[in-house]
Write a protein that binds this DNA or RNA. Structure first.
Lengths: 168, 168
DNA sequence: TTGAATTTTCAAAAAATATTGAAAATTCAA
DNA sequence: TTGAATTTTCAATATTTTTTGAAAATTCAA
């Protein structure tokens, strides 16, 4: 397999995985392309390499910049913007986890907390069953949210202690 | 808020969360409905409650049975099938995690392992950069896969030791 | 067996999501 | 300033995914 073919396989695999986990295919592919490039790439190079439109490339890049998992790189004497990926997987995986926690898990957590309080009063059998279920899922989600936060703010070295506290 | 309204809010919230994480909305809603029901429900009751078609209800139920997170419940003297949810969140969350690991993460892991070997030989700067990136993501994914497997086979009590081993 | 009740299948339709591409906005060297 | 280069926006289009619903298959009591 040629280098080019290996890169392509990585990009395709990464795009497919993203799709399964609710991340736009183009966004995942742009990250993958930058991850396997040893030099910064311009929007035009990305468009050509992935055969996607300028609009798509632009929006995907903005989203990855938002996530904080790619960076702009200025190249002297060139007006174009260039981009590089954060290559430290520990860093970018945690940023994605933290971002998805904030955007997707925390809003659910606040609904669960509201419903937990709301259903507390009810003394019917049906009401108690509902409260019990909501309570357990609320507590679980809260622990998950806490775990992500604690892990996100840690080096690998600190992680052990924090996991210990959490599990005990 | 009435009990009915609380249930509905839970079901809607759960369906929306599922969608964001690549789980079909109807599938997530059927699980949610069964989670907050204190008695078994038939396909007809589920169809009516969620206003979804028979085909959709049937396929969603089969998928949840496949995942092992809902069960069939026979009601004496009734030919219809009834369904109940696994209410222990620790059990069903781990089953979902394990299932997604097997179906989605492990195939990616095997591609990464293949690419890691494939790119090992290459001595060009570009080849070394690619190999390094693939290697790191491969190792990370493998650890993740191992983590899910170990956690899945554990009670909460055993988990501490396994986490310890993994992090050290 | 028979046939009514129930479940399953899957092609077609609908809905949701992603992508395009050209116009508008912005940037910046001369 | 000016205007060419570059980036951004977003309505229109394309693609993918989900859902429907009716026909086919299956089940089971009589």
């Amino acid at each position: 397999m040629s280098l080019e073919a290996s890169k392509q396989k990585f990009i395709d695999t990464w795009g497919a995985l993203g799709t399964e986990w609710g991340i736009n295919k183009s966004v995942a592919q742009v990250q993958a392309l930058l991850l396997v490039s040893d030099n910064p790439l311009s929007t035009d190079e990305i468009m050509e390499s992935l055969t996607i439109s300028r609009g798509n490339a632009n929006m995907s890049l903005r989203q990855l910049l938002d996530y904080g998992i790619i960076y702009k790189k200025v190249i002297a004497g060139d007006r174009k913007e260039y981009f590089v990926a954060e290559k430290d997987i520990w860093k970018w995986a945690l940023k994605i986890a933290l971002m998805r926690k904030q955007k997707e898990i925390d809003p659910v957590l606040s609904v669960l907390t509201e419903l937990e309080a709301e259903t507390k009063k009810d003394k019917t059998a049906e009401g108690k069953a509902l409260h019990q279920t909501v309570h357990e899922i609320q507590a679980f989600t809260e622990q998950l949210s806490t775990l992500v936060e604690r892990v996100a703010g840690s080096t690998r070295g600190e992680l052990l202690l924090k996991l210990l506290k959490l599990v005990m």
